[in-house]
Amino acid sequence: MPWSRARRLLAAALIPVLVLLLIRGWLVDSLTVSSDSMEPTIPAGSVVLVYKPAAADRIPAGAVVAFTSPVDRRKTIKRVVAGEGQTVAIRDAKLYVDGVAVPEPFIDHDRIDATYFGPETVPAGSVFVLGDNRSVSIDSRDFGAVPLDAIQGIVLVGRK
Rank of each mutant, 00 (worst) to 15 (best):
A82W: 05
V80L: 07
A114S: 15
P103M: 02
W3F: 14
D149S: 06
G62F: 12
V155F: 00
L95W: 01
W26H: 10
V47F: 06
A56T: 14
G131C: 09
T87N: 08
V129K: 11
D142I: 11
K94F: 10
S140L: 07
S140K: 01
L10T: 11
T32K: 14
I15E: 03
D110W: 12
G125S: 11
Y96C: 09
A145C: 05
S137D: 02
V47M: 08
A61F: 10
T68Y: 11
V50D: 02
P43R: 12
D29S: 15
I23R: 00
K75I: 13
D110L: 14
R79D: 12
R79E: 12
L18W: 02
A6G: 05
I90P: 00
V102W: 04
P16M: 10
P147N: 11
G25C: 03
S4I: 15
R141E: 02
G131F: 03
A114V: 09
F106A: 12
V19Y: 07
A13D: 07
S137A: 12
K160E: 15
E120D: 15
R159W: 15
F106P: 03
R73Y: 02
I77Y: 09
D110A: 15
V88T: 08
R73V: 06
A124T: 14
V129L: 13
A54E: 06
D113G: 10
S135R: 13
F67W: 03
F106E: 14
V155S: 01
V80R: 01
P53K: 05
L21E: 07
A13R: 08
T68Q: 14
L14P: 04
V127E: 02
V80F: 10
V81R: 09
D72K: 06
V81S: 04
S35N: 00
M38A: 05
K78Q: 06
G125R: 09
V50W: 09
I151E: 04
A44H: 06
A13Y: 03
R24Y: 10
Q152T: 00
E104R: 06
V146N: 00
T121Q: 14
Y96E: 02
G144C: 05
V47P: 04
P105M: 04
Y96M: 08
R7H: 01
G118A: 08
A150R: 15
Q152N: 09
K75R: 15
D139V: 02
I112F: 03
A89K: 11
A56P: 05
L27D: 02
W3T: 12
I59S: 01
Q86Y: 04
E84G: 15
I151H: 04
I107T: 14
T115P: 09
A101P: 08
K78D: 00
S35D: 08
Y116H: 15
S69D: 04
V28I: 14
A13F: 11
I107W: 07
